[in-house]
């Protein structure tokens, strides 16, 4: 009887440890995530100058937005808009892809808000962030 109890407890401890470990992991090494990542990485080469000039800034919902179109030469404005739209499409797809790849599509909103905070954290000084009280420079 005592042995049975001991075995049961040991099994429970093992299961609990395994489950905690499984819960603490998020898989992002999937073809879908990597493809989006590469696309965003390539686009960043064009976007970084606009972050630095303040033409484009980060939003608190994990996206980016045109902040000051006036600082962009007229000829390039359409290109900036297109860059922002494409980047936001990739970002949405990235958050969804990570949630789906981990079998929890309902995590998408939490993944998005996690990313939103981390983008701002990693942003370079001088970049702009749109919060509830408007645009602020980091």
């Amino acid at each position: 009887m005592k042995n049975l109890l001991k075995n049961l407890l040991a099994l429970l401890a093992l299961l609990a440890a395994f489950n905690v470990y499984a819960a603490a992991d998020i898989e992002v090494n999937t073809p879908g995530v990597n493809a989006i990542k590469n696309s965003m990485q390539a686009r960043h080469g064009q976007l970084s100058a606009y972050y630095a000039s303040g033409a484009v800034g980060l939003t608190m919902d994990g996206m980016i937005a045109v902040r000051d179109a006036g600082s962009v030469p007229l000829a390039a404005r359409q290109a900036v808009n297109a860059l922002v739209a494409a980047e936001n499409q990739d970002r949405s797809a990235l958050y969804a892809e990570i949630a789906n790849a981990n079998g929890h599509p309902e995590w998408q909103a939490e993944i998005r808000s996690t990313f939103a905070q981390r983008w701002v954290q990693h942003a370079q000084r001088g970049w702009w962030v749109l919060s509830n009280d408007g645009w602020k420079q980091k």
């Binding site: 489950n19 905690v20 499984a22 819960a23 603490a24 992991d25 998020i26 992002v28 995530v33 990542k37 965003m40 990485q41 960043h44 970084s48 990235l94 990570i98 929890h104 995590w107 939490e110 993944i111 996690t114 990313f115 981390r118 983008w119 990693h122």
Partner: peptide
């Protein structure tokens, strides 16, 4: 436990992806 969102792990993967995207 598995249903809860693993916030710490999410932050870690977010950091890794952001560092790669922003190089």
């Amino acid at each position: 436990i598995n249903i809860y969102f693993p916030a710490a792990a999410a932050e870690k993967v977010a950091d890794k992806i952001i560092e790669e995207v922003w190089q």
